[in-house]
Design a protein around this nucleic acid. Structure first.
Length: 560
RNA sequence: GGCCCGGUGGUCAAGCGGCUAAGACACCGCCCUUUCACGGCGGUAACACGGGUUCGAUUCCCGUCCGGGUCACCA
């Protein structure tokens, strides 16, 4: 077999040699220790939580080491490509602080264009490059054409049809298929020529010389020492449309683009032997690998499952819609990524998470469950530490998109909104009322007549007493009172009507009273805020002003 | 089924041969308190199982079990 001639027959249009290409992709000039990573999505949908996870790592590492973080679009499967998906991915990533130095990024007009010297960064644009290397492998007898059609393959592969897995004798089937495929390595020039002349499509397969009985040793930066059987599968390098499979594109691109660390989900672990073999065939230096544990969710049987699209909480845009601020999501991701993040954060409370020295060694080896409780806690803390202005701006931005009416109310009187949002804010122990922006309206809506309504019932007392409390309140209420004077008046009303003004006294002998001052307060609170629970009533009244306060109490009293 | 990865409380997790097995979230209780929120204090709750190795295993080795992933001209 003349491999040179075979290569020419298969790739007559490729005249470059690998050396020509190498010359166009010189090694990057970076400082010692600088890491080069990439995020390489296929444009088939939105970013989901499982994708944000590794991409956060991929962003941190180079940006912490003076390296380069680039975006490569793996659009090698035209069938699955979704219009506009790539643009969407980039935008979503950007809101979560994932920004690229290089690659297929958005220009001013919001269109994808290349930035950097190692492009093109869309794999569909790199056909000739892959073909050059494929041709070289054919020339060296390390790859060969395969004319077996997809239909024929389907028949051989019945084993892999998911539903039949349990009923099929895998061992036998797999062996049969393997022999069948191995037989197709044998061909003559004449046969190839006949196929080519007839215009039959072909794929290029690697000629795998691995021995599954032997093991390849390997060290993953997060998983540690690993051992796999050598690859003995003639996997496809180039599809019949001349576009590479993931495996081949990974080897060629990460080599040419100078990736130092390949960061990807652990579902790639099983194909590692293929990649090791490929890099070796191609004479490329193997990059360092980091296989990141997957985020899991609980299925209906209580078992963990890989979090995938469609799952609740998968689509990052859902978090935006739910009103989670990106900072909260990022911080939550950090707590999952590095177990010592929280400890660091406690000591560096005002520093952004980007100041945290991310450490590969601290990464978890096993997959974790997505925990909304934890996210909520992180989120509350972040929101509670923001200034009223920050909260206002972000809240308005969110409401403008998802609750325009509320946005109008908020912007109609900025000062009022700021005053409300300032309640219990600042200082060492701020209130934590807000977890998402969507919590704002239920929390503060009652301050606005547009949203005010009595939603909680009055305590279980006779209506006359409640009305009497309100009447007396109206008689004594003076907005100029200091807080203590104001509350003394409430206490006085309580005593007058047989309620305990002093909680300690009440607790010692509850039967001696009709109730206590807390009950009395709650009558007024419900009248003024519509709710049993609200921030400090005195403060609320100060914000509402005398007129509104009196109007609400009067109305409530009349309604009883 | 083969191959691979993993297995400390409900969740995230410290631990890296000797500890009463941290901490955070959640949950429960108490305190503070006119409600809520905040805060303080306390509590329930874990090394999957069985063999080794060792003076001593959560930690090292093997097996079992359980969970996950993967076995395409998808990535």
């Amino acid at each position: 077999m003349d491999h040179n001639m075979l290569a020419e027959m298969l790739f007559p249009h490729i005249q470059d040699t690998p050396a020509d290409i190498e010359a166009r992709y010189p090694a990057r000039k970076l400082a010692e220790g600088a890491k080069v990573t990439r995020f390489a999505p296929s444009p088939t949908g939105f970013v989901h939580f499982g994708g944000l996870f590794p991409s956060t790592v991929a962003e941190r590492l180079p940006h912490q080491s003076g390296g380069v973080f680039y975006l490569r679009i793996e659009d090698t499967d035209a069938k699955r490509e979704v219009e506009g998906a790539a643009e969407g991915l980039i935008k979503t990533l950007a809101t979560y602080g994932i920004r690229f130095d290089e690659g297929a990024i958005l220009d001013e007009e919001g269109k994808i264009s290349d930035k950097g010297d190692y492009g093109p960064y869309k794999q569909s644009m790199r056909g000739p490059i892959y073909q050059t290397y494929a041709k070289q492998l054919v020339r060296e007898g390390k790859a060969y054409p395969c004319f077996t059609t997809e239909e024929e393959l389907d028949e051989l592969q019945q084993v892999n049809k998911k539903e039949e897995i349990k009923n099929t004798d895998w061992q036998v089937e797999a062996e049969k298929r393997r022999e069948e495929m191995l037989a197709r390595r044998q061909f003559t020039m004449e046969e190839v020529k006949a196929h080519l002349d007839a215009g039959h499509p072909f794929v290029i397969r690697i000629l795998a010389e691995g021995d599954a009985e032997k093991k390849v040793k390997f060290t993953d930066l997060v998983k540690g020492a690993l051992e796999f059987p050598e690859n003995d599968e003639d996997f496809v390098l180039l599809k019949s449309d001349g576009i590479p499979t993931y495996h081949f594109a990974h080897a060629v691109d990460d080599h040419l683009m100078g990736t130092t660390h390949v960061i990807r989900g652990e579902e790639w672990l099983p194909s590692l032997p293929k990649h090791v073999q490929l890099f070796s065939y191609l004479g490329f230096k193997l990059p360092k690998y980091m296989h990141i544990a997957q985020i899991m969710r609980l299925d209906e049987n209580g078992n963990k499952k890989k979090l995938s699209k469609r799952d609740m909480g998968a689509n990052m845009d859902d978090y935006t819609r739910m009103g989670y601020s990106p900072e909260a999501v990022c911080e939550y991701v950090m707590t999952l990524l590095n177990s010592n993040y929280e400890e660091w954060h406690a000591k560096n409370i005002d520093k952004p998470y980007t100041d945290f020295p991310f450490n590969i060694k601290k990464m978890s080896v096993s997959g974790c469950l997505f925990d909304f409780n934890k996210l909520d806690d992180v989120s509350k803390n972040i929101l509670s530490r923001m200034t009223a202005e920050q909260v206002y701006e972000k809240l308005v931005a969110w409401a403008t998109l998802f609750d325009p009416d509320f946005a109008k109310v908020l912007t109609a009187d900025r000062e009022k909104a700021l005053t409300i949002l300032s309640i219990g804010r600042g200082g060492k122990k701020p209130r934590k009322d807000l977890c998402t922006w969507a919590d704002a309206k239920p929390y503060m809506g009652f301050f606005y007549d547009e949203y005010f309504e009595i939603v909680d019932p009055y305590a279980d007392f006779d209506r006359e007493t409640i009305a009497l409390v309100m009447k007396k309140f109206l008689e004594t209420y003076d907005p100029k009172d200091e807080m203590s004077a104001w509350f003394d008046k409430i206490k006085a009303i309580a005593s007058e009507l047989g309620f305990a003004a002093d909680m300690k006294a009440y607790k010692q002998n509850p039967t001696a009273y009709r109730g206590n001052v807390a009950d009395v307060s709650s009558f007024i609170r419900v009248a003024v805020t519509g709710k049993q629970n609200a921030p400090d009533l005195y403060t609320v009244m100060q914000i509402l002003g005398e007129e509104t306060t009196r109007a609400r109490v009067t109305k409530a009293m009349m309604a009883l």
